[in-house]
Simulated assay, not measured.
Amino acid sequence: MNKYPSFRLLKLQIVKSIFFLFIFFAILQSSFTQANSEMVFLSSDPNIELAGTLTIPETLEISAAVLLLPVAGPTDKDLSLGNHKYYKVLAEGLAANGIASFRYDDRGVGQSQGEFLQASLEDRVQDACKAMKFLKKELNDVEDYGYIGMSEGAGVSILSSDRCESAAFMVLLSLPVRQGDVEMKSQMKRLLASSFFTDEQKLEIEKEAMKFLDLASSEDSESKRKNILEIMEGKYGSVILPPYQFVPKDPVEKTDFVLSPWYQSQLNYNIQEALSRSSIPTLSIYGNLDQAIDPIANAKQVKEISPQSEVRQMEGINHLMQEANLGSPMEYALLPTSFSKDIVQLISKWILKM
């Protein structure tokens, strides 16, 4: 028996060694593609500090820097949901392409001070202005700064760029263009259409939801709180509001939630005039499985209001830019992947073309 290994076996061992070396160096390189720095800055309220993370490419020259602004609701800097950290994935993907980013915890979330529900949409816009100013100061040798916003964060990006801190470009993900109360009514209809209620129940819930939204967006009065509480305590009070984690379960707490500065400003959300004034390069991305907003109607309005915007509609993508099966909010945390890698690359390539 030959005590020396055959040439074929030796060749196989060499190939395996090269393969494992390749994997080792790939892992080693990926772990050094970005550096994270935890930072604190003052919000638009001088008594409230906001905490965030600056992620910069460590092995590449910085080509651009972006401010990441998240969806509606109390959100941490990573846009965490279940095991997913959508904005952490996005920040790391951008850094791997030479793009720095800054993201921060909403008021009253994570390490940030303040109370989320007491902050209106205008407060969020002004906080974003402060964050962009902070980013420009920290990375003052970068030539191009931009906004990347998702859902409400996309609207905040437009308003911030329009009112206080201009940018070289914007990337708008799942942007709601229509006024807040109009979009909420449309959202309720879409969620009901995919629910397990009977047709008769769907009609009853829709009627009650439309009544609720009209009441919630009406002028303040002595009877407003009483009437909203009656709906929340009623037969369909538990399903009138979308099933998001931050929505309270108790009828009284739900009523307080609806009357909060944050929710009331959501009803009056309107970015159309600001978008029409914008002349900077803009990429808008919608997922065809989005159930939180109407992707087709909103994409059409973006093109009508802002003809220079590039609009992309992605197959198999939900509201959070996640590869999905149905697109339902109930599905988000259960899906195996977070922010779509294909969309990270699409965004990165588009920014690098600027």
Rank of each mutant, 00 (worst) to 15 (best):
V15D: 00
F20I: 15
I23R: 09
S30R: 12
S31M: 15
T33N: 10
E38L: 13
I56E: 13
E58M: 14
E58H: 13
L79Q: 14
L90R: 00
G93D: 08
G93P: 05
L94D: 00
L94Y: 05
A95S: 12
G108Y: 09
G114L: 09
F116L: 10
Q118W: 07
E122N: 12
L139F: 01
V142L: 02
E143D: 11
G146C: 09
L159F: 02
S160M: 09
D162V: 04
D162I: 03
L173V: 08
P176N: 03
P176K: 02
Q179E: 14
V182P: 03
K185H: 11
F197H: 08
K202G: 05
E204N: 12
E208T: 14
L213F: 11
E219F: 05
D220T: 07
S223L: 12
K224C: 03
L229S: 04
M232L: 06
M232S: 00
G237A: 12
S238R: 14
F246A: 06
V247I: 13
V247Y: 02
P248Y: 00
T255D: 10
L259W: 07
S260E: 06
S265C: 10
N268P: 01
Q272M: 14
Q272N: 06
A274T: 08
L275T: 01
L275C: 05
S279T: 15
L283V: 01
I296D: 14
K300C: 05
E304K: 15
I305L: 14
Q308K: 15
R312M: 13
E323D: 15
S328P: 02
T337Y: 13
F339R: 04
S340H: 10
K341S: 15
D342V: 07
V344F: 02
